[in-house]
Design a protein around this nucleic acid. Structure first.
Lengths: 243, 243
DNA sequence: TGCAGAAATTGGTTGGACCATTGAACCACT
DNA sequence: AGTGGTTCAATGGTCCAACCAATTTCTGCA
């Protein structure tokens, strides 16, 4: 199956290995979840050392393109194409308040634009899906008497997906880890995110009414309430002087 | 909900190496440009194989934190702290028209928000810097009778930088490569980007007037002109049936 | 047939060797 | 003194061969 892995000859080995591998993945039409050749096999076919193969794979692993499972193999985690765009974002001091506010500003930018696009482009099916997530969220809100981060997240994801631009979801998903970290430890603010609840419904209403500017405005309001909560949380932290 | 239970890592040498290195960098107060210990020394001090050190450094290199120069050493490229947030983002797709439009929508989201933040937060020094870039751009426009992508880019970069949020610049910088690719081959549209020229000045004016909403609106207009140019270009392509 | 244990597979790590590039020290010639 | 080339040690890049650890697959017994 692996006869189309030509030997490497130029220097810049590891880069060449990645290029060859990308070509291989495309030729074999490998998708996410599928297993790719063994390190030893790659080394042999490409006529490079296994160490070089490992460095190349380490790069891809760092980019989240690939997952290695000891004893099992190396698996594709995302679609891979020769002309991919890599953007390693690094935010210093990930745990502090400023870092979270920074990501929140990105989220405000993307969320408002996505809501606007959604109002223009979402089809009936997407609209129904968003409303379904909204219902689930509201139900969880009633049952547990508070915001549920999971259902909340799914609602926003549905909006991003219906925007018709996959980049929105990809970027936000990459930053989700940071949001989530704080959602679980709401800085001592009781009912964190509570204030943002009603805006989910209003955002949906503006989208369903095909009103881009209204949707954008409601999204901005929602993020504003989250920002307020965070600022209150930061104030609390300062007062109680935790850590 | 079970995100708080990360899988235990029986083996995580390279990760431990990175943690140790991050601690070392902090303790020694190393900044960008400075040289860090050689691989051999690190291997000896940390009691791990040099290969393991190399894998760890390969990760950092992939994140753009470090630069390796053969025969010279390994140098810090960015500030490094033990609790950094990394968001490796790889965006699929690229060369086709739809991909470019998708990135442009991201740019619209970020550019408008950055302009608004800039109007709120930019200090006098940043404001002066933006105006300087603007003057350079307008001069280039007069001299060469057309848009100059380099000066144009520097203007936008200055705005992003003055937004006070490093993520804006990082995300856009990563996508710049994609914009640039098309700038160089303007799809057969003569005077590509020409229409966007006046909005640079109006954006600056709104920022200088501390008018966030105005700045946001002008930024939206600028992107809209670029989108129009692209659509015209795509239509041209279709007519002449290139490739 | 079912399942526990052995064997093969595969990524992770090690140590040692050599190559290619860099940069500084050195030297000869002008 | 200065210029240009040479030497040489330091450093990252690659390779090899072995072994470790986790996983999967096979095997043989109950």
């Amino acid at each position: 199956m692996t006869d189309l892995l030509p030997p490497i000859q130029t220097t810049a080995r590891d880069d060449a290995v990645l290029k060859a591998l990308a070509g291989f993945v495309r030729q074999e039409a490998l998708g996410p979840g599928e297993k790719l050749p063994t390190e030893r096999i790659l080394a042999e076919r490409l006529k490079v050392s296994r160490n070089t193969v490992r460095e190349a794979l380490t790069r891809w692993e760092g980019l989240g393109l690939v997952e290695r499972r000891q004893g099992s193999g190396t698996y594709l985690k995302a679609a891979v194409s020769p002309d991919m765009l890599h953007m390693p974002l690094t935010l210093a001091g990930g745990n502090d308040f400023a870092g979270l506010m920074a990501t929140l500003e990105i989220r405000r930018a993307l969320e408002s634009e996505a809501a606007a696009l959604c109002a223009i482009r979402a089809g009936e099916a997407e609209l129904a899906e968003i409303e379904r997530k909204l219902d689930l969220m509201e139900e969880a809100f009633q049952t547990r008497a508070g915001m549920s981060s999971d259902e909340d997240w799914e609602f926003h994801q549905a909006v991003f997906r219906a925007s018709g631009n996959p980049l929105f979801e990809q970027i936000i998903a990459a930053m989700y880890e940071m949001f989530h970290r704080f959602w679980e430890h709401p800085l001592g603010v009781r009912d964190f995110g509570h204030a943002s609840f009603p805006y989910h419904r209003t955002i949906f209403n503006r989208i369903a009414a095909r009103d881009p500017d209204g949707a954008r405005a409601e999204a901005l309001k929602l993020i504003a309430t989250v920002e307020d909560d965070l600022k209150r949380g930061a104030a609390n932290l300062k007062l109680s002087d935790r850590r």
